[in-house]
Structure formats: structure tokens, C-alpha cells
Simulated scan of single mutants.
Amino acid sequence: MTDIILHHYPTSPFSEKIRLVLGYKQLAWKSVVIPSIMPKPDVLALTGGYRKTPFLQIGSDVYCDSALICDVLEHLQAEPSLYPAQHKGLARVLAQWADSTLFWAAMAYNLQPKGAAALFEGVPPEAAKAFGADRAAMSAGMTRLRPGDASAAYKSYLRRIANMLHGQDFLLGDAPCVADFAAYHPLWFTRQVVPVMAGILDATPFVLAWMDRMAALGHGRMEKYSAAESIALCSASTGATAIKDSTFEDEHGIPLGSRVTVAAESFGTDVTEGELIAATRTHYSLRRVDARAGTVQVHFPRIGYVLKAVLPT
């Protein structure tokens, strides 16, 4: 198997989601720690514009968004599966809810003044201010929950998760699935990154016990790697895609070979531009050339991303 390289940073919740998936599948992987805010020149050399965390690299293939990364890891190692045969659709829908609705409620709760103060304790004021400005730019135009509304929603969601755990160890049965990993990471942020806010979890002991079971999965076999090494590897590679489906499904009237852009629908809407080389039922793939990384195939999920043709000038 070609090396799996995860570009992430320690306190990133979506990175924790993928680190645990790697642990669940007991995969070996290389760790490239990236900056939490812009500028990210080494990131952009590989992604072409996408700057959210994490992303996965295999050779000269770069996979953006944790939902797509889960699919890629499933292709690489099918067992244990993230998508239980009897609940495939439910697992995906629940994961999508957790990665969006649950995540934003949890983070609005986590980063109210007391949580933010704990997160940036010991950090120079200018660094905390830069982080805030960076995230404000990424979320421009989004509707944000007020702390009181976020707290109420988060408590309700925790109770619903606890209800799902009555009589079973994980959300959809006796083994974790993609929904568990998606629901876990915003709660992990509460408990591990801003523990001053973790009292909200005490009312749901079933959730705390489930979190302990999830944490026990570990992070697999990690080896440190540098951004320079990952870029050099990309430049020397000819492609090692883990996505098998290449059936073209045209929903936009944009033929393969066209110059296109792909960007997230809402948070982190930075644009990646390249040649459209795949548009399947689940993902888009762009080919682009970078001065340092060489020819790169950048992959995005369809859900949550916008494909547009680049108009001639």
C-alpha cells in the first residue's frame, strides 16, 4: 500500500475524527502537522486553494474533506467497515448531521468566552486575534448560533445521542461506524481541548462511557513526516488513487477536460482550480500543476461542494 499521509494539527476536531478512523482500521500513516491558520504555503502547493483541515495525501492524490477521506480509507481497507451493511444510509445521514448541525452547535458552545480563554491561555494576544480573524474570514456569511442557543441545542443533541446508546455500545450497534466518528469529534474538543467547558457532558453518562470506548480505539501507527517530504513525494509520484469509481455523471453540463473550480458551499469557501478529470456520483477530481508539487489530482466530495466552469476571459 502506498503511504497514507495525513495533513493535520493536534487540536483540529475533524483531524481527530480521521485519526480515530486510522486507529479503528489499525492503519500505518505519516503525520504532517500543518498551521492552524493562514498562511499555509505548503498546504496550498498540494490542494491549490483548499485550506481546511485535515486532508489526506496518497502519492500525488490529495483528498479533501473528512467525509471523502472516510470513503478513501474504506476503499484501502474494507474491514472493519465504517458503513454497516444494514444501516449504510442511516450511518451516512447521521454522520452528515453530526459533521454539520452537531459540530456547529458544539463549537459555538465550546468557544464562548470561557472556552476561548482556556483555548488561548498562554498564547500571545496577537496570535489569538489572528486565529479569530482567520476563522471569521472562513465563516463569512454563515449564521452563527449565540452562546445561549448553542448551549441549549448541544444539551438536546447530547441527550439524543445518549438515547441512541441505551442498550448498545455504539450509535448503530455493537461496533463503531462512520456516524460514531463524526459525532465523537466535536465532543472530544469539549472534553480534551477546552475541558473547562466539559461539565455539559456530565448529565449524559452514557455519552461519556461511549466517548471512552471511542478514545480507546487509538490512532493507529503514526510516523512523523515533514511538509517538504510530502511535497517531494507528490512531485515524484504518478498517481495512486484509492477511488475506484470513475463513471462520469454530468449534472452541470460541464464536460471532462474543462477548466473548473471547486469550493465548499459555506465554511472555508476558498477555490481550487484545475482540469476536471472525474465527476462521479460521489466526488469531483481536478488535475492541477504546481511548481513544487508537480501534477496533483485533488479530489472533493460532491455533497457540500460547488463545481463551476471557468469562463474564458
Results as ranks from 00 to 15, higher is better:
175 A>C: 12
176 P>A: 14
176 P>L: 09
176 P>S: 06
177 C>Q: 05
177 C>E: 10
177 C>M: 02
177 C>K: 05
178 V>F: 09
178 V>H: 04
178 V>R: 03
178 V>Q: 08
179 A>M: 05
179 A>S: 12
179 A>R: 00
180 D>T: 01
180 D>L: 07
180 D>S: 01
180 D>I: 01
180 D>F: 06
180 D>E: 08
180 D>V: 03
181 F>S: 04
181 F>M: 01
181 F>G: 06
181 F>I: 08
182 A>R: 04
182 A>C: 00
182 A>T: 08
183 A>P: 02
183 A>T: 10
184 Y>H: 14
184 Y>V: 05
185 H>Y: 14
185 H>A: 08
185 H>M: 10
185 H>P: 04
185 H>V: 03
186 P>K: 04
186 P>F: 09
186 P>I: 03
186 P>R: 01
187 L>E: 04
187 L>P: 00
187 L>G: 00
187 L>F: 10
187 L>Y: 07
188 W>F: 12
188 W>R: 01
188 W>K: 03
189 F>G: 04
189 F>K: 07
190 T>Y: 03
190 T>D: 10
190 T>F: 10
190 T>I: 15
190 T>G: 12
191 R>L: 13
191 R>M: 11
191 R>P: 00
191 R>V: 07
192 Q>N: 14
192 Q>S: 14
192 Q>C: 13
193 V>A: 11
193 V>W: 09
193 V>S: 08
193 V>D: 06
193 V>I: 15
194 V>A: 09
194 V>M: 03
194 V>G: 00
194 V>L: 07
194 V>K: 03
194 V>Y: 04
195 P>A: 10
195 P>M: 11
196 V>W: 11
196 V>Y: 01
196 V>A: 13
196 V>G: 13
196 V>I: 13
197 M>Q: 15
197 M>C: 12
197 M>E: 13
197 M>A: 07
198 A>L: 08
198 A>N: 06
198 A>T: 03
198 A>K: 05
198 A>E: 00
199 G>P: 07
200 I>T: 08
200 I>D: 09
200 I>F: 02
200 I>E: 09
200 I>S: 10
201 L>T: 02
201 L>D: 07
201 L>Q: 05
202 D>P: 00
202 D>L: 11
202 D>N: 11
202 D>C: 05
202 D>A: 14
203 A>C: 06
204 T>F: 05
204 T>R: 02
204 T>C: 15
205 P>I: 09
206 F>H: 12
206 F>S: 12
206 F>G: 13
206 F>C: 10
206 F>R: 13
206 F>E: 13
206 F>P: 10
